[in-house]
């Protein structure tokens, strides 16, 4: 399958994520959208990794082995994302307890 498909899919996911973060006010949805963007990045990493590997397989003498760095990174990101989810959800829970709402517009106290 050509690499373009993966790129377009990742792009679409990422844009949906960005749009969601910008447009929605519900913290949980924003949170999910951030996950979406992260996963778009993950998808690209895996796709490129696979592509480079395929290129190397085709002509092993010409270029150095790309290894599995890209795919390794994905695991890193997933781990970080998991950590982030736990911290983020905790924040959201705290926020809900304090404001009885999950609307980000209530969180304008950064100003002062």
């Amino acid at each position: 399958m050509p690499i373009q498909y993966y790129i377009f899919l990742a792009l679409a996911l990422f844009c949906i994520g960005v749009a969601g973060v910008l447009a929605r006010r519900n913290v949980i949805i924003i949170f999910m959208c951030i996950e979406l963007m992260l996963n778009a990045a993950n998808l690209l990493l895996v796709a490129f990794s696979k592509m480079h590997h395929a290129a190397w397989m085709a002509k092993p003498a010409g270029i150095a082995s790309p290894g599995a760095d890209g795919q390794l990174f994905v695991f890193f990101i997933m781990a970080v994302a998991a950590a982030e989810v736990s911290v983020g959800l905790a924040i959201i829970v705290m926020m809900y307890r304090n404001t009885h709402s999950v609307d980000v517009n209530f969180l304008n106290r950064l100003k002062n």
Partner: peptide, 11 residues
Amino acid sequence: LQSGQVGSYIL
């Protein structure tokens, strides 16, 4: 510009 709105910061 520093409205304190998370949304506008992100934007």
